[in-house]
Amino acid sequence: MTDIFDYLIPLSLAAVLVVLLAGLWNMMRGGSASRSQTLMRWRVALQFAAICVLMAAFYFTAA
């Protein structure tokens, strides 16, 4: 069970990083505000999912 967290944690953190970088890229090149809002909502949702994965890992791997 705990082996799955070895893959889920980096995957969730990488997803947050990709969306964050996409949002920064959009902002730096003067992209649309609507796209920035969409990327920000995705980032917040992915951060929530990453925190849930981390908390589940802590819960299931506690001795």
Rank of each mutant, 00 (worst) to 15 (best):
M1R: 05
M1V: 08
M1Y: 10
T2A: 03
D3S: 09
I4Y: 09
I4F: 05
I4Q: 14
I4C: 00
F5P: 03
F5C: 05
F5G: 01
D6Q: 13
D6G: 04
D6I: 02
Y7N: 11
Y7M: 08
L8S: 04
I9A: 07
I9P: 06
I9K: 13
P10C: 04
P10R: 06
L11V: 03
L11R: 14
L11Y: 12
L11F: 11
L11P: 04
L11W: 10
S12K: 09
S12D: 15
L13P: 07
L13I: 11
A14E: 15
A14K: 15
V16C: 14
V16K: 14
V16D: 14
L17A: 15
L17Q: 15
V18L: 10
V18Q: 12
V18M: 10
V19D: 05
V19G: 00
V19L: 06
V19H: 00
L20E: 13
L21Y: 00
L21W: 02
A22T: 00
A22Y: 01
A22R: 01
G23M: 04
G23R: 07
G23N: 04
G23T: 00
L24V: 00
L24G: 03
W25K: 02
W25M: 06
W25T: 01
N26V: 00
M27V: 03
M27I: 01
M27D: 08
M28F: 07
M28A: 04
M28E: 06
R29H: 05
R29V: 01
G30S: 01
G31I: 00
S32L: 09
S32N: 07
A33L: 08
S34F: 11
S34Y: 11
S34L: 10
S34G: 13
S34N: 11
R35G: 02
R35W: 04
R35T: 03
R35F: 06
S36H: 01
S36M: 02
S36W: 02
S36R: 01
Q37H: 07
Q37P: 01
T38Y: 07
T38L: 08
L39I: 02
M40C: 01
R41M: 03
R41G: 02
W42I: 06
W42L: 12
W42N: 10
W42V: 06
W42T: 07
R43K: 12
R43D: 12
V44Q: 08
V44N: 07
A45R: 06
A45S: 08
Q47V: 04
Q47L: 13
Q47T: 12
F48V: 10
F48T: 10
F48P: 00
A49I: 05
A49E: 10
I51K: 09
C52H: 04
C52F: 06
V53F: 10
V53W: 06
V53I: 15
V53D: 09
L54Q: 14
L54C: 14
L54M: 15
L54V: 12
M55T: 12
M55C: 06
M55P: 03
A56N: 01
A56C: 05
A56T: 05
A57Y: 13
A57D: 14
A57F: 10
A57W: 13
F58A: 13
F58M: 14
F58N: 15
F58L: 15
Y59D: 12
Y59M: 05
Y59I: 06
Y59L: 08
F60Y: 14
F60D: 10
T61C: 09
T61G: 10
T61K: 15
A62C: 08
A62M: 13
A62H: 15
A63D: 15
A63H: 13
